[in-house]
Nucleic acid binder design. Structure first.
Length: 648
RNA sequence: GCCGUUGUAGCUCAGUGGUAGAGCACUUCCUUGGUAAGGAAGAGGUCGUGAGUUCAAUUCUCAUCAACGGCUCCA
């Protein structure tokens, strides 16, 4: 007999070799039907795998994350079975569950191409196979035997997987006619998979290396009930409505034009208003933090990028040079070298430090064509850039001040769904991807970590993600459709000072090399506004809204009064317009609502006689009549405070 | 850059081997209407671009450009 301990601390005795499923059945049939896997002593196991020793047991169902992931991984196997049945000879690589939901399987279909139309056929086959209620059967196999099996099969992919596995504990899973090398675990049987949707087919490099062969990747999602699939698909539809590319078009924020070029957004008047409000915020904030503004050209000679070290290593990400007077000029992909030159323009003393140079600099990056993505990934970008030149002693405080600036901004915008990522170097790549200064790396990484810890900022550490000149903190956010982006960045640079021979005279009249902080708390106009569009679902707070109030006359009899109200609003600095179309009030309200204008001011005879406006807040309906002056005072305050009223 | 998909009016989308259609938006007229679509008429597209097949191409084929879903990349 063995003792099984449950999460609530209860203990119960069972025969050795009992399975989680048996345990579940001993509790109730209903529970047993729901169990899809088990957590045994902290490891996720098949619910059907015998437990031979005393163990802590958690029964996993669909409501557990590990339950869902097991379910999706088993769904990937089911898909592989359907693929193998449909396209014999296919070879499989890996088929994991995704943290974001669903699964994929990478496969080599030889010369065959898989089109999206064929996914429906595969789905149908999967549904048939699911209904056979085939059990997922686990089998351990010695490595030699496994190698022989795949050698005979001619499956170089699984042999590659095996080459990295230790003998012992190598397992295979079989359901129906499909057998796969797999560490598991799996759900008890295919019958649990009730609703399947194969979402897309894509290419994916083998092992994620672009030098390798491109495999075919099929993405899918599955659920234990049709209703959940329907809800999932509805959620995707909702997410699409938030997509900044759709909202950007609907709200007249930006446009792209074939003649201008890919990744080169044209900012429409509405988008430009937002840019100017953001710049105003940044300038106010930076002024208060004693930054100095600078302006630099969009191009520079090759020699500067040789100095900076960007050439030749990053030439691929820069637009090719233009040649003039026997010199090569590059469009700038970053502002730092220009700022370093400004630092270097006059001799510096320690009394000049920290020196903080800020610029909304225009950069051009030759992003690969397949990478462009609305406003989030573009080839022309405006960074909320600044470089802080400081001494080692000043560094921690400066770095902390930059972090505080981030947090202040995030509060203004109500940004709370993000991850701070501390990006560290990889010692194995010193001298290649990273500047070969092992001690400096450790030293600065420790400093940065300390600032984060002391500021009580939750963060994750990621190795091999640093900039080539130093560690950095990135703020990761997700687009409406789930793509991850770096919104803001705060980077340490202990290298460029030397490269540019930057120096200052210290208290002892000796030369010192400044440390540099690269920071962009608002990222770029492009990405930040793309993000804000999705964050607010287009319903900008009043201070950012391109149009803040729209005056809606009941009929044109009240036009003179409307013009008078408009004049007062404009005088108060409120962005306002009159809807002077020959339409009924319901139509005017509907159109203004759809354009997500924060305030609608309905004006008719009553309002005209009382010198009032009937206020309607976007998304909230009629808020009653107010004196014009009272309304203006309220809105002005809302704007000046940059109130972050988020409407549902 | 790579794999797959798509490209018809300002927007969303039908459609066809015999030189195109809807809704919304737009213009004009009627209506002067009180909190999410009043009515009528009109204008608007050489069907992404180039080439090929054909008596005939928006439709079929190829190339190219762009967008979309991924992969890789993101100093």
């Amino acid at each position: 007999m063995i003792k099984i301990t449950f999460p609530d601390g209860a203990r119960k005795e069972f025969e050795s070799g009992v399975t989680a499923m048996d345990v579940a059945k001993s509790i109730s049939e209903g529970l047993a039907r729901k169990v899809i896997a088990a957590n045994v002593n902290g490891e996720v196991w098949d619910a059907t795998r015998p437990i031979n020793d005393d163990a802590n047991l958690i029964l996993l169902t669909w409501s557990d994350t590990d339950g869902k992931k097991t379910f999706w991984h088993s769904s990937a196997h089911l898909m592989a079975e359907a693929v193998e049945a449909t396209y014999p000879g296919v070879k499989f690589w890996v088929g994991p569950a995704l943290d974001s939901g669903g699964f994929y399987y990478d496969m080599d279909l030889g010369d065959r191409k898989l089109s999206e139309e064929e996914l429906a056929g595969l789905e149908k086959k999967m549904n048939e196979l699911a209904k056979t209620n085939s059990a997922y059967i686990r089998k351990e196999m010695p490595k030699a035997e496994a190698v022989q099996y795949f050698t005979e099969k001619g499956d170089e992919y699984k042999l590659d997987l095996l080459s990295n596995l230790e003998d012992g504990g190598i397992t295979f899973y079989t359901q129906g006619n499909f057998t796969d090398l797999c560490r598991g675990p799996h759900i008890p049987n295919t019958g649990l998979i009730k609703a399947i949707k194969l979402t897309s087919v894509a290419g994916a490099y083998w092992k994620g290396d672009e030098k390798n062969k491109m495999l075919t990747r099929v993405y899918g999602i599955a659920f234990p009930a049709q209703k959940e699939l329907d809800e999932y698909l509805a959620m995707l539809e909702e997410a699409k409505k938030r997509d900044h590319r759709k909202l950007g078009k609907e709200l007249g924020i930006y446009t792209m034009d074939d003649d201008v070029g890919p990744g080169l957004p044209l900012w429409l008047p509405n988008g430009t208003v937002i840019i100017e409000e953001l710049e105003k915020l940044a300038k106010e904030t930076e002024e208060a933090a004693e930054y100095k503004r600078v302006v630099t050209p969009h191009i520079a000679k090759e020699s500067m990028y040789l100095t900076s070290g960007h050439l030749p290593y990053y030439a691929d990400s820069m637009f090719p040079p233009m040649e003039l007077e026997g010199q090569k000029y590059y469009l700038k992909a970053m502002n730092c070298p220009h700022h370093h030159k400004i630092f270097d323009a006059e001799p510096k003393s320690y009394k000049d430090l920290p020196l903080r140079l800020a610029e909304y600099g225009t950069c051009y990056r030759y992003e690969q064509s397949g990478e462009l993505f609305g406003l989030m990934r573009v080839r022309c970008l405006h960074m909320n850039d600044a470089h802080i030149y400081c001494t080692e002693e000043q560094f921690a405080e400066e770095f902390r001040a930059v972090n505080d600036m981030y947090l202040k901004y995030f509060k203004i915008f109500g940004i709370d769904k993000y991850v701070m990522r501390l990006s560290l170097h990889n010692p194995e790549k010193l001298g290649q991807k990273y500047v070969d200064e092992p001690e400096l790396w450790i030293k600065t990484e420790t400093m940065v970590r300390k600032v984060l810890v002391e500021s009580n900022i939750p963060f994750v550490e990621v190795k091999d993600e640093a900039a080539f000149y130093g560690p950095k903190i990135d703020v990761q956010i997700w687009s409406a459709i789930g793509r991850e982006f770096t919104l803001a960045t705060n980077q340490v640079d202990f290298n460029s000072g030397n490269k540019f021979k930057l120096s200052y005279t210290n208290q002892n009249n000796e030369p010192g090399v400044p440390l540099i902080i690269h920071r962009a708390p608002l990222g770029t106009h492009e990405r930040f506004i793309g993000f804000l569009l999705e964050h607010y679902a287009g319903k900008f707070p009043v201070w950012l809204a391109p149009l803040q109030a729209k005056i809606l006359p009941i009929s044109d009899k009240f036009m003179d009064y409307c013009k008078n109200v408009l004049k007062q609003l404009k005088k108060a600095g409120i962005r306002a317009e009159i809807d002077d179309r020959n339409e009924k009030i319901g139509k005017k309200i509907r159109d203004t609502e759809l354009h997500k204008v924060p305030y609608m001011l309905v004006v008719g005879e009553k309002e005209m006689n009382e010198n009032k406006v009937s206020v309607r807040r976007q998304g909230k309906g009629d808020a009653g009549a107010k004196d014009v002056a009272e309304f203006i005072a309220g809105v002005k305050e809302e704007i000046e405070n940059r109130e972050n009223v988020v409407l549902s």
